[in-house]
C-alpha cells in the first residue's frame, strides 16, 4: 500500500468564502474578512487507501469533502486526481469523467435521498446521468450488483421501495449502493455513520472496508470520531481551522500523537487509552475560533496548553517526526 501511486493529491488547497460584514463595517468601508474554511491543505490519498480526516465541527473537513467532489470550486492551490490537474475543471460535461471516478456518501442518508424516488431509481441515477449503460437489462444488472455490494439483500426486495420505508442503516446502504454503481476509484464519505445507531455503525464500516478489499477503492473518510477513524483508516489527517496539523498512520495518530491538538482530541475520547508522555495535558478550553478570524501565528495557540512566545508570532512549518508522520508544531523543532 505505501508504494501505491497517489489517486488524489491536494497542494496548498484553499477555499475562501467572501465574508459578509456587518452594517457598521459597510458604512465605515471596512473590508469584511473572508471565511477561510480550507486554508492551505496538503494531503495525498493513495490508490486503495483509506484516509480519515478528523477534526471538530468548524475545522473545514466537510468543506474539504465538498471541494474534492467538486460541489464547490477551490479558490487557491491545486487539486490533482490521478496525476491530472482538476482544480479549475467545471461544468456538467467537463466533469463527467471525474464524476465517474469520484463519488460521495453523505452524512444524513434521509436528506440525501429524494423522497419521491424509488430505491431502484436512486441507485440507477448515476448510471443514467453519466450514460454508462443504455439498455435496461444491463442497467438492472448493475443496480442489482450495487445493491448486493452495499449489503441490500435480496436486491429485488428493495427496488420498488421508497426511502421513508427503509431503516436508517438501509438508507445509508442505498446511498452507498448509488455511489458504487459507477465503480469509482475514490469515495468521499462525509460522516457516513455519525447519524446511525452504534449497532448499525459497525455494519456500515464493515461494508466500506470490504469494498476497499474487493475493489481496491480509495476512501476519504471524514469524521469527528477518533476511534472510528482508527478502526477504519490506514492513515489519519487531523484538521484544525482549515489546515492539517498532523498526519500519520492510524496507530501513530491514535497512540503516539505529537501535536497538542491531537493529544487533546485523543484525551477527550474515553475509550482509547494509549501510551503517551503527554497524558497529563489539561482538557481543551473554549471553542474553535471563527474561520473568518483565524489567529496569527500558530492557529491553535489561543487554546494550546503548551503555547509559548514563538507560537503567537509565526505559523509552524510541517515537520517530519517519523516515517509517514508529520506535524505542524514548534515543539517538534
Amino acid at each position: 500500500m505505501p508504494d501505491a501511486p497517489d489517486i488524489l493529491r491536494l497542494e496548498n488547497l484553499q477555499v475562501h468564502f467572501p465574508g459578509r460584514g456587518g452594517v457598521l463595517d459597510h458604512i465605515l468601508g471596512r473590508p469584511s474578512a473572508a471565511v477561510r474554511a480550507v486554508d492551505g491543505v496538503d494531503l495525498a490519498v493513495r490508490r486503495g487507501e483509506i484516509v480519515a480526516i478528523v477534526g471538530e465541527s468548524g475545522s473545514g473537513k466537510s468543506t474539504l469533502g465538498r471541494v474534492i467532489t467538486k460541489l464547490i470550486q477551490p479558490t487557491g492551490g491545486r487539486l490533482l486526481f490521478d496525476g491530472d490537474d482538476v482544480t479549475s475543471m467545471k461544468g456538467f460535461s467537463a466533469l463527467r469523467p471525474y464524476r465517474h471516478r469520484v463519488q460521495m456518501i453523505f452524512q444524513d442518508a434521509y436528506q440525501a435521498l429524494n423522497p419521491r424516488h424509488t430505491v431502484f431509481d436512486i441507485v440507477a441515477e448515476p448510471l443514467r446521468s453519466l450514460r454508462l449503460v443504455t439498455d435496461h437489462t444491463q442497467l438492472t444488472q448493475r443496480v442489482r450488483q450495487s445493491h448486493a455490494a452495499a449489503g441490500l439483500n435480496p436486491p429485488e426486495e428493495f427496488f420498488a421501495r421508497f426511502p421513508h420505508e427503509l431503516s436508517g442503516g438501509q438508507r445509508q446502504r442505498v446511498v452507498i449502493a448509488g455511489a458504487l454503481a459507477v465503480a469509482p476509484d475514490l469515495i468521499v464519505a462525509d460522516e457516513p455513520v455519525s447519524m446511525l445507531d452504534v449497532s448499525i455503525r459497525a455494519q456500515i464500516l464493515q461494508v466500506l472496508m470490504d469494498l476497499r478489499q474487493q475493489r481496491n477503492m480509495a476512501l476519504l473518510f471524514i469524521t469527528h470520531d477518533l476511534p472510528v477513524a482508527w478502526l477504519i483508516a490506514d492513515r489519519i489527517a487531523v484538521m484544525y481551522l482549515g489546515r492539517v496539523v498532523e498526519t500519520g498512520t492510524a496507530d501513530d495518530i491514535t497512540f503516539r500523537p505529537r501535536h497538542p491538538y491531537t493529544v487533546a482530541l485523543r484525551n477527550a475520547t474515553p475509550h482509547v487509552r494509549g501510551h503517551s508522555d503527554r497524558e497529563k495535558l489539561p482538557a481543551l478550553k473554549g471553542e474553535i475560533p471563527s474561520a473568518a478570524r483565524i489567529p496569527n501565528g500558530c492557529r491553535f495557540h489561543p487554546r494550546c496548553p503548551l503555547a509559548f512566545a514563538r507560537c503567537r508570532e509565526d505559523a509552524p512549518p510541517t515537520i517530519e517526526v517519523g516515517p509517514e508522520h508529520t506535524t505542524a508544531c514548534w515543539l517538534m523543532k
Binding site: F92, R99, Q111, A179
Partner: peptide, 26 residues
C-alpha cells in the same frame, strides 16, 4: 438546498434533469 440535490450533482445529473426529476415533482 436539500441534500438530494447535492447528491444528484455528485452523481452527474445535469441541471435540467435535476429540475425536472428532483424539483418539479416536489
Amino acid at each position: 438546498e436539500r441534500q438530494f440535490v447535492e447528491r444528484a450533482r455528485v452523481v452527474g445529473t445535469n441541471d435540467l434533469n435535476i429540475m425536472v426529476h428532483h424539483l418539479l415533482p416536489l
